[in-house]
Design a protein around this nucleic acid. Structure first.
Ligand code: FES
Ligand code: FES
Lengths: 173, 173
DNA sequence: CTTATTGCGGATAAATAATATCCATGATAT
DNA sequence: ATATCATGGATATTATTTATCCGCAATAAG
């Protein structure tokens, strides 16, 4: 059982965007460079996040990405589900219905107890992620990370952020 | 994020073995047939489980598998870890140390806050699995599954279980 | 002792998913 | 008009999962 490595990148990117001044955006190329990642691949995840309405994107020159809402209203679960997909990790293939002794499908209306137990565990996982907000991550970063790293990060963002100006498109017609 | 499909098979097999009479074993071929699975592949998982001391195996004719301890003392977490491996699902590649602005390694002794949050969620998942015992799964199965399925299962096991006889090897010399 | 059965472990193949790159397109600030 | 930048699809590359096979060791039964 593994989460794709894109999750780590996505959350780190979100944390960077959360520190942006109001109304500004950061191009994908800057996010990729800051984390030493391939721009082409990071784009995939950024697109997934903007498709999930967690990031907003602005095309054209001075374009880039920014958060679609306040960091207090973005949970780690939002990000993980956007990048990783919403299907549960435990996939029940209904093996109880296979092999000899299989009954007609109507005999299996009650879900398998094993499936129920596995999904209950997964629900606990999601609950913890849902109550961890991006704002807490950012606060923790500023409090605990090496001050030099924070300063560099801040300067890098300041250097690459787009000038305040255009408003983001609200509803595509 | 996905669990391998072998987890479902492993737990179902464990539930079957839990219903075996004391001291008896069931050959892998019977477990595979009962669930309509490929014997060759199921073996892989059975071996992982016996390597993890959750199942015991007895070679030779009249050999087979049985539980290594009482179902009350086997949790779903034990089974999942044996099949899936013990590494956490969230793999931190320390991307904070990459890109420009990377500092010397000693600046990163404190774990990344994102990693901490993700592992905390995973701990919650494991906690629920750890407190769900195989005995509960078996009890739930007998109470909720279609009586015909339970009866068939029971008869199938009775037909294939090995005669009581040999004791399992305790300590390989 | 011989034989048939069964688990063990390694090697390997096939299928699937994750990772990474590229390019044509459309939007838009200058 | 031009340059910048996100979008979306197509595609290559690699890793992981799934599945199969075969020789080996153990052992019960004849
Ligand atoms: S049939 Fe899928 S978990 Fe039991
Ligand atoms: S560096 Fe791995 S989660 Fe932050």
């Amino acid at each position: 059982m593994k989460l794709s490595e894109g999750v780590e990148a996505a959350i780190h990117c979100a944390a960077v965007l959360a520190r942006l001044e109001d109304g500004r955006a950061l191009p994908a190329s800057a996010l990729a460079e800051l984390h030493g990642l391939s721009p082409s691949y990071l784009l995939k995840h950024l697109q997934a996040l903007s498709g999930a309405k967690i990031f907003e994107s602005l095309p054209g020159p001075n374009g880039g990405y920014r958060l679609a809402r306040a960091p207090e209203r973005i949970s780690l679960l939002d990000i993980v589900l956007a990048v990783e997909g919403a299907e549960p990790a435990f996939r029940c293939a209904e093996i109880r219905q296979r092999g000899p002794g299989a009954l007609e499908p109507t005999a299996y209306v009650k879900p398998c107890g094993i499936k129920v137990a596995m999904l209950r565990a997964e629900k606990a996982w999601r609950a913890v992620l849902a109550e961890t907000k991006l704002s807490e991550i950012v606060a923790g970063y500023q409090a605990e990370a090496d001050p030099r790293a924070v300063a560099f990060n801040c300067a890098f963002v300041g250097r690459h952020q787009r000038p305040q100006g255009r408003s983001f498109p609200k509803a595509p017609k």
